[in-house]
Each structure stands twice: as structure tokens, then as C-alpha cells.
Design a protein around this nucleic acid. Structure first.
Lengths: 231, 231
DNA sequence: ACAATAGTGTCTGTTAGACACTATGCC
DNA sequence: GGCATAGTGTCTAACAGACACTATTGT
């Protein structure tokens, strides 16, 4: 059986994670200072080598990296794309299997606030090493596209939320206002939410809003409607 | 600089290609007998090791593999997903960056008919090694989804085609009939086709159909409409 | 009572699909 | 002329967005 020998195959295999959250109604991404050369100390996507002994799959490697480097266990962690080639990393021919995660800002504030973590606006990225800028832009594009016809943005919310809150989240992700009636129709159509009985948002000087949560069946799952939302 | 040493990192990196075409109004996939163990001789997706010295990126590796193993240069070759893990290949921890290609049946007949190439219906797959069955099913699902709102199926056609031919292609890919008026409205909306002046389909005992081709600007590019087609 | 936002009923313009009609080749 | 399919005009039902109205809190 012929396989490339280890000496003539300097391909190294990594995972990178684009962790997205909403802050001030804008998509933000988590950057961490690189702990290794090249670009040591510079903000970059959390990433690391795949460890064949430890990680069952690249998905598990991404989950481990996110946990080890940012202390975050994201409920939503999905493959984005794989970047590869001879030129993207000065150390040699590299493969980076990239995942994206969506988390509520609250979860992120508690966990990743240690170290020198930076949460930067996705529309105003600083200079980034490797092809991390392209990667983030693809992740943002993917999330926007998917959000138009699915329950994806729910992962930016906490366990419970009101309709106006959820609508604001969708509007932030899509970057445009959504008709209130249409929005509620679409969400009802997806049939993924249930009311949190009795619980109401209180303390505001107006009619209180009903709290909702994802139905058990849809938890950690993705619901899609045929037609798309907003626009 | 710490990198995993070659000895403790037995990860090997491959590409696989799902080449899809339409035959008898059904999606079919190209399978080739494996030239190496394991599963030597069994039909499987064309694939091979990434060659760091030769391939600029995984995309180039996929193009090379398709060219070397099937003699095909596909105009459409796009990344599908990356499969990885310790269990999927008995040789060890593997990464397979998977691409999918769309070609007209005519192009395929001429090129890949050598050797023991098999073109099998995607809905009746034989037993396949590794996770190739899952991979093909993902590719088919991806093509169906994308076809509903884009010009993707045009890649199954030759250089020129009539509207009824194109509609039949969309119907085959989506697996359901499409309203003729709606279809022509959508295609016109995409604004990606131009008439081939004068050229008409002749020899049939009925009114001849106009031939169309992709506009130069849209050649090799993908056009998407907001709303989706058919259904 | 009033301000402010939650939530709903309804109207209207747009659009997708059904249907029917015309167009144009071969026989 | 008859048949078969290409291609188009038009009606209708479904749907998304606009608007306006009611509901319910705090002050």
C-alpha cells in the first residue's frame, strides 16, 4: 500500500473557529492573541492543530479548541469550509477546517472575558493574519444567508426571549428592518417556539411581552421555512 | 515553534470528487474502481492524496484527480464539505476535502467511458467504501437546494439548449414538475441567457424552439434569484 | 389619563401557478 | 388541414408588507 511518506508530505492540519455573537445590534467575532509564531501575540481566530490521538473528528477538535482557548462550549458549532494550500501559511502546505459558532453575548461575556480576548465588529475587522479576514467574511455571509430562511438566529438568544427581542436579533443579523406581522407569521410557521407559561417581561412602562423558548424537539436543531424571511 | 512531529501525527489528507450528471432524467454519479487497498477494485468516488509539491490548493488537487482518473475537466467544481476522523478510513486519521462537479452527460460519455468507469443512479447507490454513500447524498442534497434558486443546473446542459430542454433539466434535478410560465419568468429574471440568433431546433414535427446560451458575463459564474424556483 | 410598546385584524399590491390561447414546424 | 410542441396573455389564489387598531403595562 502506497501512502505519501511523512517526509515528503509536509501537510499540516488545523481547525479554526469563527465565534460570532451579537453586540450592540451588530455581528461581532471573537479574536484571541496567537500563542505561537508566526504572528505571535496578534489577534486571530482561535485555532489549533488537530490531535489525532485526542480528537475523534475535526468537529471535536474545533470544540476542544474553543473550550481550551476561550472556555466556551457553543451549542451551535457547524462546519463552514476548508481552506488549504501552499501559500496561506508560511510554515508550509496547510489545511484549515473552519467551523463557526453562534453564542449569546451573555454566555460569551462570562466565559471569554479572561485573557486578552477581543470581541470586534465583523464589519470593521482589524488586520488579521493568514486568510482569517476572508474566513470571517464567509462566515458572516453564510450566517446571513441561512438566517433568512431558518431558525439560526435563535442561537444568538438566551434560553428565553420575547418576540420583539427575537425580531431585533433577526434584523441585526440580516441588517435590515423586518415587517412585524410578516415576522410573526414566519416564526409561527416554523413552529419551533413555545410560550413560557405565565412568564412575562415586567418593569417596562408598557404592555409586557410574552416569553418564548425553543421547543424541546427543536433544541440544538435547525428549522427552515421554504420561503425566506424579511427582505 | 511547536508543530506536531511527523511521527505522532499520522493524519493523511485526501480529496474526493462527486461528479454528477443527468442521465435518463435522473441524477447519476461517477464511480471508479479503487486502484489501492483498502477496497481495491471496488467502485468508489474518484479521489487521491493531496500532493503538496504539485497542488496549489485542495481545489487544484481535486481538479487534478478528476483529470487523471477520469479524463474530465469540469467547468463547475466546488467544495462540498470536509470529512475527517479516526474511524472513517482503516489506515488512520484522515481528512477528505470533498468537491462536487456538474457536467453534461455528453462530455462525460466521451471522456470517462474508458476503463471501468461506472455511472450509477444517485437514488440507487451500490454498497460503497468509507463514508462515500453519505458524501454522495450530501452532494445531491446540496445540488437540489442550490438549484431551486440559482442557475446551477445550466452546468448539466451543453453550450446551447432550448427552454423546454432546460426546464426538463431543472425538473429532473428538483424531482418535481415546474410550471412552464413560472419557469420562463424566473429564468428571464435571472437574466443570464441570450438567444443564439437564428438557430432553431429543427426536424421535429412541431414548432421549433429557440436556442439559448449562457451570457459571456455569466459563463462559469453562478446566478441566483431571491425567491426560488418551482415547488 | 397618557406614553409606550405588545400583539392582532385587515387591506392591498405582488407574485406564482392554472389555463387557455396563439404560433409554427412536419406530415 | 391536422398534430404536436413552442411560446404568450391573462385570471386567480396565495402571500408579504402596510396600516391601523386594540391590549396592557408604568407613571
Amino acid at each position: 500500500m502506497h501512502m505519501p511518506s511523512h517526509t515528503d508530505s509536509p501537510i499540516f492540519c488545523t481547525v479554526d473557529v469563527v465565534l460570532l455573537t451579537l453586540r450592540n445590534d451588530r455581528l461581532h467575532v471573537l479574536l484571541l492573541p496567537r500563542d505561537k509564531v508566526p504572528h505571535q501575540g496578534q489577534p486571530a481566530l482561535p485555532g489549533g492543530f488537530v490531535r489525532a490521538q485526542e480528537d475523534a473528528t475535526a468537529w471535536h477538535a474545533a470544540r476542544r479548541v474553543l473550550r481550551e482557548k476561550a472556555g466556551i462550549d457553543s451549542p451551535y458549532l457547524e462546519q463552514l469550509a476548508t481552506y488549504s494550500g501552499a501559500e496561506r501559511d508560511p510554515r508550509g502546505w496547510s489545511v484549515s477546517i473552519v467551523y463557526y459558532a453562534l453564542v449569546p453575548e451573555a454566555l460569551l461575556g462570562a466565559a471569554a472575558s479572561g485573557a486578552a480576548a477581543r470581541i470586534v465588529a465583523a464589519h470593521r475587522l482589524p488586520a488579521l493574519p493568514f486568510d482569517h479576514r476572508d474566513i470571517i467574511q464567509l462566515a458572516v455571509a453564510r450566517v446571513r444567508t441561512k438566517s433568512a430562511y431558518s431558525s439560526l438566529p435563535v442561537y444568538f438568544c438566551g434560553d428565553t426571549f420575547t418576540m420583539p427581542q427575537l425580531q431585533a436579533v433577526y434584523e441585526s443579523v440580516l441588517g435590515e428592518p423586518i415587517n412585524k406581522v410578516s415576522f410573526r407569521r414566519k416564526i409561527a410557521e416554523l413552529d419551533m417556539l413555545e410560550t413560557v407559561e405565565g412568564e412575562m417581561e415586567v418593569g417596562k412602562a408598557h404592555r409586557p411581552a410574552q416569553f418564548y423558548r425553543l421547543k424541546r424537539a427543536y433544541s440544538r436543531r435547525l428549522s427552515t421555512s421554504g420561503k425566506g424571511l424579511g427582505g
